[in-house]
Design a protein around this nucleic acid. Structure first.
Length: 363
DNA sequence: TAAACGTGGGA
DNA sequence: TTCCCACGTTT
């Protein structure tokens, strides 16, 4: 049996029924691919449904506020994916009257769409023979062909891409691509691949040479940078509106761009409370003498790929209305703002731990 | 081209 | 609990 036949008979038995597999709509495939890029299917599924309910067409998305797109994306991480989706939707409306482009080159040109996603959309929506090379395909083919170059380097990926082109079923590019990724994901797994029941075992280099555990080869992980965040959760009890909390929109080219957190004093190492309140930054943020530190949180550790963040939250009740550049929000509207997981976690802890420290009980 | 970009599953 | 790792694109 040839490669495609083996693959398809495996796929016909094992494929999962997922909404984006039942459509040829390039918009739906696009959205699902972007969500699934760095996200597991189980988690991505919910986001996909919510996204489609909220933005059912490209024009709907193009007309959205970035704030709302980020809010919908909250918790998924890699927020540039959401910003790029919006950017490209606007581009499609402007350049192509809202019609999704239909050539590989045009698709590939959209912001947020790289080699993998362009191939996925072109093959699944239009049945064009562009092989997808995602993490699953890299793993499977590096084992199957015995590729010992690092698959997270350009040369290793290129080698796999060339071999994938040779295997591609030109009659069914969409099905071939879905099948090969599903195979890598479910059968040729990272940890303990099910070689015993694998239809390709006889021709698999790694299996026949006992190199399954050695492949694929990856470059070594990088050391995360340590950062120390001292957040100031400034609360002012407004006579009319109740507690106001001050949020900061992150603008710089840094993590969580365009999401919200709190006024922040970043330090080069851990800082004690007594040292912190002596700093110029603290005095600049807490201008009034009538301020009370209501709570100092535990240190939250938040690990990103390249950063290890140690965060502490100081809940400060201000005695008088502050004048500052931050975004005021009443407590009940807090959940309208897109925030990173770290902030979400702090807020839910604050709400869960007895009397809400964010509420001002003084009279 | 190497580094940046987040989160969560699972060991 | 902590640690390690997976997942594509951009710059």
């Amino acid at each position: 049996m040839n490669f495609t036949k083996l693959l398809f008979s495996w796929y016909d038995l094992h494929q999962r029924d997922l909404p984006w597999r039942r459509t040829k709509d390039p918009y739906k495939i696009w959205i699902s691919e972007i969500i699934l890029q760095q996200t597991r299917i189980e988690q991505g599924l919910n986001y996909y449904h919510r996204f489609m309910d909220r933005f059912s067409t490209i024009s709907d998305l193009a007309a959205a506020d970035e704030h709302d797109v980020l809010k919908l994306w909250q918790g998924l991480g890699y927020y540039s994916r959401a910003r790029n989706l919006l950017h490209s939707a606007k581009e499609i409306v402007k350049m192509n009257q809202g019609l999704f482009p239909s050539t590989y080159a045009e698709i590939r040109n959209l912001k947020g769409i790289g080699d993998y996603t362009a191939a996925a959309i072109a093959s699944m929506a239009y049945d064009m023979p562009y092989p997808v090379v995602d993490g699953n395909v890299l793993r499977f083919f590096s084992r199957y062909f015995g590729i010992f170059e690092s698959v997270d380097k350009a040369s290793g990926k290129k080698a796999v891409l060339l071999l994938a082109r040779g295997k591609m079923d030109l009659a069914n590019p969409g099905k071939f691509n879905q099948a090969i990724m599903e195979f890598g994901s479910l059968q040729c797994k990272t940890g303990s691949p099910d070689c015993h029941a694998c239809p390709f075992r006889e021709n698999c280099f790694a299996f026949t040479h006992e190199k399954v555990v050695d492949l694929p080869v990856k470059s070594k992980a990088i050391q995360p940078r340590k950062r120390y965040f001292n957040f100031l959760v400034l609360i002012y009890k407004d006579p009319e509106n109740g507690e106001i909390i001050y949020l900061r929109k992150r603008k710089e080219n840094d993590i969580w761009k365009n999401l919200y957190d709190f006024p922040l004093i970043e330090s080069s190492g851990p800082v004690s409370q007594s040292k912190l309140i002596q700093t110029a930054e603290w005095r600049n943020l807490v201008k009034t003498k009538k301020a009370v530190i209501r709570k100092r949180s535990k240190v939250y550790q938040h690990r990103l790929t390249h950063q290890l963040i140690f965060a502490r939250f100081y809940v400060v009740h201000l005695g008088k209305k502050p004048v500052n550049e931050f975004t005021p929000a009443v407590l009940k509207n807090l959940d309208k703002f897109p925030v990173p997981r770290l902030i979400e976690k702090f807020l839910s802890d604050a709400a869960a731990n007895g009397p809400n420290v964010l509420a001002d009980h003084r009279r």
